[in-house]
């Protein structure tokens, strides 16, 4: 059984706004019956204020699909259309206190139904911008289609590169066989063989690392962390530099990163980037309570 949050259970067992809205003037139908999830979202939009006055859903789907639909209607009721369009699938998942990785697509379906309904209201044609594949990486919820497309678009050749671009395989590493299979398949299309021993291409040019002064080194560390930051923020997390002591770089993980079960994998990722960027071995360590107190963090 899935490890559903109490919020998911609550919205599944007692869904809000089930059924079609009377006098709806916006309808969004999305989903795929072959995958077992489909959703019709009906909205009543006030034409003068462009505010969603009422929302209802009809869902063919599992517990989390029904819960995602229910919570979506609660989120958007009373919102203006423009604000509603800013609702992300992560917002839906957050409102449910999280979804299992295999079930994140339920929140995506909710967001897409909303977009489709707004397009329908505005008389626009809505088309889906992505195709969903079989889930490969369970740690970061990355599917096969995304991996395949990313390999093609960026000419990737190794599992490590796939991890760098998509995060897939960056956690427990159980899916590396699956990633290798996708690499084999895509490379074979171009008449190339997958080489498991090939080194990942690094962005940093080869050559002797330039000797940095302590101040330059500190600036460099901060610059590298700033590069990583958008990725963390996309997952509602962040990282803060607390101290540098020789090879040890002390950081504080904040937001969704703090207490995240993937925090150690994230630290490993940050460490790899710092090692590459600085051209020397460093160790990224979570800052101690005393260190945090010293900087008032």
């Amino acid at each position: 059984m899935w490890d559903y949050s109490d919020k998911v259970k609550e919205h599944f067992f007692s869904p809000k706004n089930a059924g079609a809205v009377d006098g709806a003037n916006a309808i969004g139908d999305v989903g795929s019956i072959s995958c077992g999830d489909a959703l019709r979202l009906t909205l009543k939009v006030n034409p003068d204020t462009e505010t969603i006055e009422d929302a209802g859903f009809q869902t063919f789907g599992c517990g989390s699909a029904i819960a995602s639909s229910s919570v979506l209607t609660e989120i958007i009721k009373g919102m203006s259309l423009d604000d509603a369009l800013k609702v992300t699938n992560q917002d839906i998942a957050d409102e449910l206190d999280g979804l299992p990785p295999e079930k994140m697509h339920c929140s995506v379906m909710g967001r897409e139904a909303l977009q489709a309904a707004v397009a329908n209201y505005r008389g626009e044609e809505w088309s889906d911008d992505h195709e969903e594949g079989a889930l490969v990486c369970k740690c970061f919820a990355v599917d096969a289609v995304l991996i395949e497309d990313t390999i093609r678009a960026n000419g990737l050749k190794t599992v490590e590169e796939v991890t760098n671009y998509t995060k897939a395989g960056g956690g427990c590493s159980s899916c590396h066989e699956g990633i290798e299979e996708i690499l084999e398949m895509v490379l074979a299309e171009a008449g190339e063989d997958f080489d498991p021993t090939a080194a990942a291409a690094t962005a940093t040019p080869a050559g002797e690392p330039v000797k940095l002064s302590p101040f330059q080194r500190m600036k460099k560390i901060e610059a590298i962390l700033d590069e990583i930051r958008p990725q963390l923020q996309r997952d509602h997390g962040d990282v803060e530099l607390i101290d540098v002591d020789g090879k040890n770089i002390f950081v504080k993980m904040t937001g969704a990163c703090s207490g995240c079960q993937m925090a150690s994998a994230t630290l490993d990722g940050i460490q790899t980037r710092l090692v590459e960027g600085l051209g020397e071995f460093v160790k990224v360590v979570p800052a101690s309570a005393a260190q945090l107190a010293a900087v008032g963090a």
Partner: peptide, 25 residues
């Protein structure tokens, strides 16, 4: 079934798979 987009009151929609044909997402 009350929640299902393929269902209407006491029975399925007429030609349910045509009446509700969502955009693949």
């Amino acid at each position: 079934r009350k929640l299902s987009p393929y269902w209407d009151g006491e029975g399925p929609l007429e030609e349910p798979e045509k009446a509700f044909a969502p955009t693949y997402a």
